[in-house]
Design a protein around this nucleic acid. Structure first.
Length: 876
RNA sequence: GGGCGUUUAGCUCAGUUGGUUAGAGCAUACCCCUUACAAGGGUAGGGUCGGGGGUUCGAGUCCCUCAACGCCCACCA
């Protein structure tokens, strides 16, 4: 059979498309491609928003998860990666509303039913974009199992969960102070509020009391004065003690409110007295609960003032702030306004200032779920990588508040509740059918409520499906640390509560992808890197490889195009290596790998290195250090295999020694084959393509077995010898450079081989091939090296380069003196180490032995140099 | 106010059981179109591993402390 010949370069655009289709059509992304009794390995893909376009963060998670999945698949696991998308309540609704606005209509104008229909239409049309973009990165997920958080099955699961929680008494509904987004006109959870310190003002004024005096008070939000229901001072504060129990009068409204005492008040801050607005401030809301105060809301849902604001009704809150202050100033009630930095809560989505507001919402009692989630990580049933995030996780759970799960949006899972004409609530899986008139709840659930069920809802829960049985609990939850609270914690809580099992056993958190200088990517900065653009120009493999090798767990990664370009060159390098090896093989079958003892030194060396790399990679994979493993492969393939072994192999390949040729080819092929396997999870496309040119019989690399180290080929002695030879070669190269020998000129080498005669004789070809030497000769006893020669010393070996026309003896003396000084310093250090009894007694024996060998080598070297120097000295 | 992370070559970063002369890419300088690869090869320069202290025979690595930068959490009006 004639094998196909390789093109000169890798046409990634063509190959990526072809290979992806080939993998998928063969069903290799499915766990069913593994034996029926294979151990499952499952990842639930963090579902990207349907509104999304692929960004660097997606590229990161796809790369890491695909790497994990491909690795485990090669290890023989039934690897399942469940893909899907999230309906993304707020994001999608905003997008569709913007579209409607362009059409000259609006959500409200369209009405509930029509709006939902338009949103579904939008989803059908554009929701697939992100999914097809994931494919371009090589995502080997099981598309037959793709889910959408709002599809029928998942909606069923959501209703089931909600109803059960209700039945368990964990869901309650009622008026509470919540974070209200006036722009979106919905409640949002604490997590959706971003707190940023901003420049503002602190307004000082006199709070009138009923007896005609006043208490000085300060506020950052004067408009909330209109909703005050108390003034609070510290119980021990001598300044105000006499006023406790009396009444104060709300400015401009003259409403009488109590003056209370609570040690919550900080006597040092502001005036030491506090106005209390339970209807618009979370701290004050606590005071309201403790002191049974009134609660007055002074704003409408759009943050304009309501009727409780008296004459200010109808004004926007910030307009009201100015007007009220001006009026108070005119009334002589104000004291001063100071610049003040304070924390302003803003909507994560819309950016507008969040207003604490009284609102009737649905809540989930979180403590019972949180306790279970806490325990699961504490007792190790779930492991978080990197471990430091466990601390963050615990801290968050220890301070968790009930979760406001209702949203006043239209796009989402509607809360399965109905109201009768008296406003009585019914919660159930379906609308009550008792003939009475029931009005459905219009609020929907927080998007994260449904994504919290993701690991089990996607597998069929609450039905006892075969998938659920086989693939739950899942194995790995890989996602960004920025959604640890939003999503990961909620999945753990929901999973434990409803399935009684952890939803996954390991959480791997990756960092944010930043720009080349480490800045956060932002549209306004214009530094957004588009992964699709990089894929178009370099291919998916270099991008993937760059993302993995540039990152460590939990740390942010800078995405620099320069690195992508460099890794594109790495892809090319592997391509050229493969081309070299396969073209030397011709149409021959793959020769068997010789036994360790039958190998020449370079082959012993490269196989020892290879098996070492396999071992190291395994250790790194076991500890989730994929980046480091990738770099090791790079160093090995380029720095050792290509730069040294392949170059040396030419000696055998171009010789007439058939056996040696076959053996060398076997080593080349074996090393390449093993390396391609190890690299496949990083660079699935180019490795798969290259593998098809190898004379193996298995159908695809994606299903090939993961390499295991073979101890028999580990050979420290061969590595030691090769290290010496490589040092000598580098020494010759350097000497050539330093003396300006023309690159094309072949020079002779006279070797004083010391204890290494056999080694140097066997491997003299290396100098010819790697240092352009004509030959290596070994002078018989009594012969001396030529006077005009450069010396290269390593251990007890000295090489002389007779370069009579180029050598200046005084320069050579200087060179050797410098070398001698360097060696002497090292000898001093090593000697000091070895003469330290503590070191000899307490250090590991192999470390001590290594130092002894080093010292012997150094001494041998310095002896050679000293001898040479004295020889040269006699000349001058 | 708590907690966490980062600080290593000009730039961006590796360096996870403490142990050879601390590495890579990019950039820089010089040389080479040597029959896999110029998308390449060779060689070189460049670091008191943020400061200080400690543990240890031995510290970039472990402990303490300080500093700068960044992030997360948090109810100071």
């Amino acid at each position: 059979m004639t094998r196909k010949t390789m093109p000169k370069n890798f046409d990634f655009a063509e190959a990526e498309k072809r290979l992806y289709a080939w993998w998928q059509q063969n069903g290799w992304f499915k766990p069913e491609s593994a034996p029926a009794d294979a151990e499952p390995y499952v990842i639930s893909m963090p579902p990207p928003n349907v509104t999304g376009a692929l960004h660097a963060g997606h590229a990161m998670f796809v790369t890491l998860e695909d790497l994990m999945i491909r690795y485990e698949r090669m290890r023989g696991k039934a690897a399942l990666w469940v893909p899907g998308t999230d309906h993304a309540g707020i994001a999608t609704q905003l997008l569709v509303e913007r579209m409607l606005k362009d059409e000259g209509t609006s959500r409200v104008e369209l009405g509930y039913e029509d709006f939902l229909q338009r949103t579904w239409e939008w989803k059908e049309k554009y929701g697939g974009t992100i999914v097809s973009q994931l494919r371009r990165l090589g995502a080997s997920c099981d598309w037959d199992r793709e889910r959408f958080t709002l599809d029928e099955g998942l909606s069923y699961a959501v209703r089931e969960v909600f109803v059960r929680l209700w039945e368990q008494g964990l869901i309650y509904r009622g008026p509470r102070l919540v974070n209200w987004s006036p722009g979106l006109q919905t409640a949002v959870s604490d997590l959706e509020v971003e707190r940023e310190e901003e420049n503002g003002k602190l307004y000082f004024f006199k709070y009138p009391t009923e007896d005609g005096s006043f208490i000085p008070v300060a506020t950052t939000r004067p408009e909330t004065i209109l909703g005050d229901t108390a003034v609070c001072v510290h119980p021990e504060d001598e300044r105000y003690k006499h006023l406790i129990g009396k009444k104060a009068l709300v400015p401009m409204l003259n409403r009488a409110i109590p003056i209370i005492a609570d040690d919550y008040v900080d006597r040092e801050f502001g005036t030491g007295a506090l106005k209390v607005t339970p209807g618009h401030d979370f701290n004050d809301y606590e005071l309201y609960k403790r002191h049974k105060l009134d609660i007055i809301s002074v704003m409408n849902p759009d943050a304009t003032m309501n009727a409780n604001a008296g004459s200010y009704a109808g004004l926007d809150r910030f307009v009201c702030r100015k007007k009220l202050w001006a009026d108070m100033e005119a009334a002589g009630m104000t004291t001063e306004v100071r610049d003040h930095r304070y924390v302003v809560p803003r909507s994560q989505r819309g950016g507008e200032v969040i207003e604490p507001m009284m609102s009737t919402q649905w809540f989930l009692k979180i403590q019972p779920l949180a306790d279970k989630a806490f325990a699961a990580v504490k007792d190790g049933r779930i492991k978080i990588v990197p471990e430091r995030f466990e601390k963050v996780y615990f801290h968050w759970l220890e301070n968790i508040e009930d979760w406001c799960v209702s949203r006043q949006l239209w796009w989402g899972h509607r809360i399965p509740a109905w109201y009768d004409e008296n406003g009585e609530v019914y919660v159930g899986r379906e609308a009550p059918r008792d003939g009475r008139e029931w009005r459905p709840e219009l609020d929907v659930l927080d998007t994260w409520f449904s994504s919290g069920l993701w690991p089990f809802s996607t597998l069929g829960w609450p039905h006892d499906t075969p998938d659920l049985k086989r693939f739950y609990p899942t194995t790995m939850m890989e996602t960004g640390y920025d959604i640890l609270f939003f999503w990961v914690v909620r999945m753990i809580m929901m999973g434990l509560w409803f399935t009684g099992e952890v939803p996954f056993t390991t959480v791997y958190l990756h960092g944010l992808v930043r720009d080349a200088q480490g800045r956060k990517m932002s549209k306004t900065l214009g530094n957004v890197v588009d992964p699709l653009d990089l894929i178009d120009r370099y291919g998916a493999d270099p991008l993937r490889y760059t993302l993995v090798t540039g990152s460590t767990p939990g740390n942010d990664v800078n995405l620099d195009e320069v690195r992508v370009e460099r890794n594109w060159k790495f892809v090319n390098k592997i391509w050229q290596m493969t081309n070299f090896i396969t073209s030397n093989l011709g149409d021959a079958e793959q020769p068997p790998l010789p036994a360790p003892t039958a190998l020449d030194l370079p082959s012993q060396w490269i196989l020892s290195r290879l098996n070492n790399v396999v071992t190291v990679c395994q250790r790194l994979f076991d500890t989730y250090q994929y980046g480091e493993a990738g770099r090791q492969l790079d160093d090995f393939l380029w720095g050792e295999f290509a730069d040294w072994y392949i170059e040396m192999s030419k000696h055998a390949l171009y010789s007439d020694d058939i056996q040696r040729k076959r053996d060398t080819l076997a080593v080349l092929l074996h090393t390449l084959d093993t390396s391609l396997r190890l690299l496949h999870p990083y660079m699935p496309f180019v490795t798969e393509e290259l593998w098809s040119y190898l004379p193996q019989r298995q159908s695809a690399l994606i299903l090939a077995t993961w390499p295991q180290p073979d101890e028999r080929y580990i050979n420290p002695e061969a590595e030691r010898q090769m290290t010496l030879l490589m040092e000598l070669v580098r020494g010759v190269r350097l000497a050539r450079e330093e003396y300006g020998v023309e690159p094309g000129r072949k020079i002779g080498i006279i070797a004083n081989p010391g204890s290494q005669r056999a080694l140097l004789e066997e491997c003299s070809f290396m100098f010819a091939r790697l240092a352009n030497a004509a030959n290596v000769v070994f002078p018989s006893n009594g012969d001396t090296a030529p006077d005009k020669a450069a010396s290269i010393v390593s251990g007890d070996v000295t090489l002389y380069l007779p370069l009579a026309d180029l050598i200046d003896i005084s320069a050579e003396v200087q060179r050797l003196q410098a070398e001698r000084e360097k060696l002497k310093q090292q000898i001093e250090r090593t000697q000091a180490q070895l003469s330290n009894e503590q070191f000899v007694q307490r250090a590991r024996p192999d470390i001590v032995e290594r130092e002894r060998l080093k010292l012997a080598d150094l001494n041998a070297s310095v002896t050679q140099i000293v001898e040479r120097l004295s020889a040269l000295d006699k000349l001058s």
